[in-house]
Nucleic acid binder design. Structure first.
Lengths: 360, 360
DNA sequence: CTGAAAGCGCTTACAG
DNA sequence: CTGAAAGCGCTTACAG
């Protein structure tokens, strides 16, 4: 079919008011729910307004509503990138949840250039967003405090390290605790734990869950079984190539991990930093003739769809991004509509869940 | 640090006009570039306006600009879902490109419910987007014609089947042509081609490229080497589970493919439908004791980061989503600023590129 | 360059 | 319920 390239004239509130023969205010009350409880429109009239609005294809002008101080029903969504492999499910769920609550989502990529985080914050301000959801990794640049100052209604994924900030976090200690227990139940005795930096809170949490599970089973905690990526491993984290806009994953660090934990320490299980570490581990172990799970069990962390494609399929910890997204949007809605959230409701912990497949 | 939860008062155009002691019009001209060429502000004054605007943290109110008919600098981006595994790179690149041209991106998920496509089109209308980028798979529901009618400035990824519509497409015939030639050069003689439906244009294109490469090398085209997913294979396509919001990939169809093409027809190579088919193929072949690439070569289609995690790493065709995204945004910008695009510029073909890894 | 005014499409407060 | 008016922050056309 052929399509005409004319910009269609939009129907306005006043157009349908004139057509029905009522005031704009009545139309506004019926269609947009404005005016509080003061306005009472007869049921007959209300129905007619609805009917005419529908037949004329009325769509309220959001810019106009926004200008008079109504909610924009727009959320800013800060992400590393729309295709962020570690958080693409989270991003998707956040967007779904926002939409389910009647909001639009303005997506802001931050990973392409160091100043993009702050630029997007400005943009969100211009755009008059009601609130911001921040799913950017803490290890990426960006002024979180400025974000919070400009947009008090902001909910983070993971603790941004700002006092009283609202955030949702996965129970990392609980996650590793589950994984460790699972491995112990499967008869593993020398369980390795792969971490990045020693000083990071997230990594300390994981270590805590690990130690606790060991002690509950009266197993000795051996520091030699904990692997830390050394500073020379620049590829310890997922990285984003700015030119191709593609993500890449650790490689060399994995061989080091195999040498130090699997070979030197005779580990019979590894809890990996994430599913990508785990997938690479499986590949490299396979090349060295070490069998998974016969010789060694591997547990991932995330539950990306990648886990179905490793051979064997990866047992992993599902970080429950759907629950996290629901919590984040729910918190944000509360902050926007009500007053500020009481302190004890500003930090929500989401429970992860172990998914057993074939690698353990 | 503690954060105050007050909504900050935004600086307006008039505020900085008063501060500097000039008219709003001058400020508008200097800061927003309005008023055409009529307005001439002295260089001194202009600099002072810039300085004061910066010091006061002025941010133009986009809703107000939009209301008086200026561009909203907002694009609608229709996607299956933000985490769409087949197009997440495309989505990311589209967003990047839009931002690079100074636009905001309103993301619209469509896969959660059948009416979401059309709902999002309405939403885009309300939001006053300048144009729409549609990256939704053609096999998903949604009224493309209504989209095009409401938003004449729309660019599709892949031909939506509407006359004169603007779209960017990958050269599918060229892609399969490259893959086939590559396999022939590597000494393969019985090259299988895995397709979905016989009647789909996209699949016919692939077949064309396949046949052409064969005939160029004087190889006989054998229809038995072409696999079509039968209607019973409901899992031939990537599917999105509405409850978990997660995607899943074909499984059973792959075993059928192995039986019919690899075993019955003794294929020594397979060009898969996409990287997911290819990854699953590699896994299943491995279980059957068929070695890749010793016994059979496998080529994927997409170049997802998944390809690095298969064992062996997957040779695949990079669909060049970055180039596609650049083209799409460039077309859209032209449509928005100028008049309608001449017919011959409405359909752009992007060239894919074979990436050799280990599976061939 | 300036000021004063009108208008974009809505909501709200006001007087009936 | 109504109409007439003011205002949100901007741009534009108008008269100087």
């Amino acid at each position: 079919m052929n399509v005409e390239f004319d910009r269609p004239k939009r129907v306005r509130l006043v157009d349908i008011a004139e057509k029905v023969g009522v005031s704009r205010r009545s139309v506004s009350a019926v269609l947009l729910g404005t005016g509080g409880s003061r306005v009472s429109v007869g049921e007959e009239k209300a129905k007619e307004i609805q009917r005419v609005a529908k037949s004329m294809g009325y769509q309220p002008n959001l810019a106009a509503r926004q200008l008079v101080g109504k909610r924009s029903h727009t959320f800013g969504l800060l992400v590393a990138s729309a295709g962020d492999p570690l958080r693409s499910f989270l991003i998707q769920h956040l967007d779904e949840e926002a939409a389910a609550h009647g909001n639009r989502t303005l997506i802001g990529n931050t990973v392409v250039a160091p100043d993009r985080f702050d630029k997007n914050v400005q943009l969100f301000t211009n755009s008059g967003v009601d609130g911001v959801l921040c799913a950017v990794h803490n290890w990426l640049p960006g002024d979180r405090l400025a974000l919070l100052t400009q947009h008090p209604c902001t909910v983070f994924y993971e603790d941004p390290g700002i006092r009283d900030a609202c955030f949702v976090s996965v129970d990392r200690a609980g996650a590793i605790h589950q994984a460790t227990r699972h491995l112990i139940e499967r008869g593993r005795q020398r369980i390795g734990l792969a971490l990045t930096a020693k000083s990071k809170r997230s990594q300390k949490d994981r270590l805590r869950g690990y130690k606790q599970a060991l002690s509950e089973s009266s197993l000795k905690y051996e520091p030699e079984l904990v692997f830390y990526a050394s500073p020379k491993h620049k590829d310890a984290y997922a990285r984003h190539d700015v030119d191709s806009l593609k993500w890449s994953f650790p490689e060399a660090v994995i061989d080091d991990l195999i040498q130090r934990i699997v070979i030197d320490q005779s580990a019979d299980a590894i809890i990996a930093q994430d599913d990508y570490w785990a997938a690479t581990l499986i590949k490299r172990l396979h090349r060295s003739g070490i069998r998974v799970p016969d010789d060694i069990s591997i547990v991932g962390y995330l539950n990306h769809y990648l886990t179905d494609f490793t051979a064997p399929a990866l047992t992993t910890i599902d970080l429950n991004h759907m629950a996290a997204a629901k919590e984040m949007v729910s918190m944000l809605e509360k902050m926007i509509s009500g007053d500020s959230l009481p302190l004890e409701q500003r930090q929500v912990l989401v429970q992860p869940k172990l998914i057993q497949r074939e690698s353990t």
